[in-house]
């Protein structure tokens, strides 16, 4: 089964290469950084305000920071972290995506309440219910041996 999956993976990779060989779309390259305006990397902003709704070469509508963006950005982030890096330094992501920290994101940035960060307020009692209903949402950030240090004092 394992070999079959790996073979399928390789075959798909070859198909991708074949598609690439056939393609003739002119190359587009993202800039390294967005111009630093209006504290852009620290704000929850809508890219389409300036960039509009044109779909190519970048579909900026996809990256609009909706009020629920904190919880639903992973699908777009997995696909090209360079888009995130246009406005955010890696340290910005490390507020949540971190190997080890003692300050939950909402405490580290207590006055930036417009960012709707995870676990805002008293979360200790609420996490019993959220964790029971959807442990996968806990696992994403607390699943590895280093980051699960926040869980181990109580849960082992």
């Amino acid at each position: 089964m394992k070999k079959g999956i790996i073979m399928a993976f390789l075959a798909a990779g070859l198909t991708v290469a074949l598609l690439a060989a056939c393609a003739s779309t002119p190359a587009y390259r993202l800039p390294a950084k967005h111009p630093n305006i209006y504290e852009l990397g620290d704000r929850r902003e809508f890219c389409t305000k300036c960039h509009g709704y044109k779909k190519t070469p970048v579909d900026f509508e996809r990256y609009n920071h909706t009020p629920l963006f904190t919880e639903s950005h992973r699908l777009v982030a997995y696909q090209d972290q360079r888009i995130c890096a246009l406005c955010h330094e890696q340290s910005f992501c490390n507020d949540c995506h971190v190997t080890q920290t003692e300050l939950k994101p909402s405490i580290k940035n207590q006055t930036e309440n417009y960012r709707r960060m995870q676990h805002r307020g008293e979360y200790l009692s609420r996490h019993r219910i959220d964790g029971r209903l959807d442990p996968t949402s806990c696992y994403r950030c607390h699943g590895n041996p280093q980051s699960s240090q926040t869980c181990r004092p109580c849960h082992g």
Binding site: T66, S72, G131, P135, T136, C138, Y139, H142, G143, N144, P145, S148, C151, R152, H155, G156
Partner: peptide
Amino acid sequence: FELRPFYQRYRYEDFLNRRPGGSAPF
């Protein structure tokens, strides 16, 4: 307006890895 319907499916055995060193609930 914008509508974003979604569907997710997780199998705990394959998503919540039994890796050593992780927390007990997982």
